[in-house]
């Protein structure tokens, strides 16, 4: 999505509040945040003890997910407010990200006004563009037809695409529509054929980032937390030296490493979900947490990639920390 007036100061917050937000975000880099570094397929977690290195060759971008514009239940009566807080935090990052990716469920019920409001709120992000992939909540109006009226990235009328930036190849997938009764959703043959053709022109030394809403590994099948044909997609990605898969859907941070492929789910900006198979919780419904706790369960993720210089760094920062 192009955002021509992205430099306008559209936030309602006064300068002092923005400054506080900036300091809070800086604290995220230097204090509470955990940096996941993946070197040679081995993840290392460490408290971020120093500000990020200033490397002009680094590609920085931010992942947000599961904003659920239109949700208004007890678990979060103000999802718009949560997105605004995330926007302020992103705009205050010490080094501006190149763009923001949103990994699905931008809307709650696929209503045109929900998509429209999300697009409007994204205008407040001080980035050139926001790349989105659909979640199943975005596929409730003529499939993804309603979603594509607002988020058709390359004008081709389809919900998957690829692009290159800073020597990194990005792929956005739609894995929220093809489903069998009682089964996991899937990517589908058409898109897998497209992915194969798309990757054919990408050298194996190129870092690849894949965006998809539902995790590309099976986290918990009884709740549908997996993609039926993810193995077929991962097989196409396996020859690449650095593959980072960014998912949403489960509203919490989970990781998996498979050789050179690392998969990460992200926090939501709407409401928490239970941990997979959590005792006493029979279904993946919104969790209402104690007052003051919600901001600690919602958040954003900053990603930094330097081509030819691993590791990929991911910093998950709650809205409140």
């Amino acid at each position: 999505m192009k955002n021509p007036d992205h430099r306008s100061e559209s936030t309602d917050a006064p300068p002092d509040a923005r400054r506080r937000e900036a300091l809070r975000c800086l604290a995220g880099w230097t204090g509470a945040a955990v940096v996941w570094s993946v070197v040679g397929g081995v993840p290392r977690a460490a408290l971020a003890g120093a500000p990020p290195a200033k490397d002009a060759r680094a590609l920085r971008f931010v992942q947000i997910s599961d904003t659920h514009i239109g949700f208004h239940k007890d678990a979060n009566p103000d999802v718009v407010g949560s997105l605004r807080r995330a926007t302020a935090a992103i705009n205050a990052l010490p080094q501006a990200p190149a763009f923001v990716v949103h990994t699905g469920d931008v809307s709650h019920l696929s209503k045109p006004e929900e998509f429209g409001q999300a697009r409007e709120l994204f205008q407040d992000l001080h980035v050139d563009r926001v790349h989105t992939v659909p979640g199943e909540h975005d596929a409730l109006a003529e499939g993804v037809g309603g979603y594509l009226k607002v988020f058709d990235h390359d004008g081709k009328g389809r919900s998957w695409y690829s692009f290159d930036q800073h020597g990194v190849h990005f792929v956005g997938l739609d894995n929220v529509r093809n489903f069998g009764k009682g089964h996991l959703a899937s990517i589908g043959a058409e898109q897998l054929a497209w992915l194969k053709a798309d990757l054919a022109g990408v050298s194996h030394s190129t870092p690849v980032v894949v965006l998809a809403h539902i995790p590309l590994w099976t986290i918990y099948e009884p709740w549908g937390w997996g993609t039926a044909d993810s193995a077929a997609a991962l097989a196409l990605l396996r020859p690449y030296g650095s593959v980072t898969v960014l998912n949403g859907h489960v509203h919490q941070v989970l990781q998996k490493v498979e050789g050179h492929v690392t998969l990460h789910t992200a926090m939501s900006l709407a409401y928490p979900l239970p941990t997979p198979g959590q005792e006493g919780v029979g279904e993946p419904g919104p969790v209402t947490v104690a007052a003051g706790e919600l901001g600690k369960r919602l958040g954003t993720r900053a990603i930094r990639i330097v081509r030819g210089r691993e590791p990929v760094a991911l910093v998950d920062t709650p809205l409140e920390h």
Partner: peptide, 9 residues
């Protein structure tokens, strides 16, 4: 036979 498109399980 029917299902939920949001939760196919």
């Amino acid at each position: 036979v029917y299902t939920c498109t949001l939760h196919p399980f």
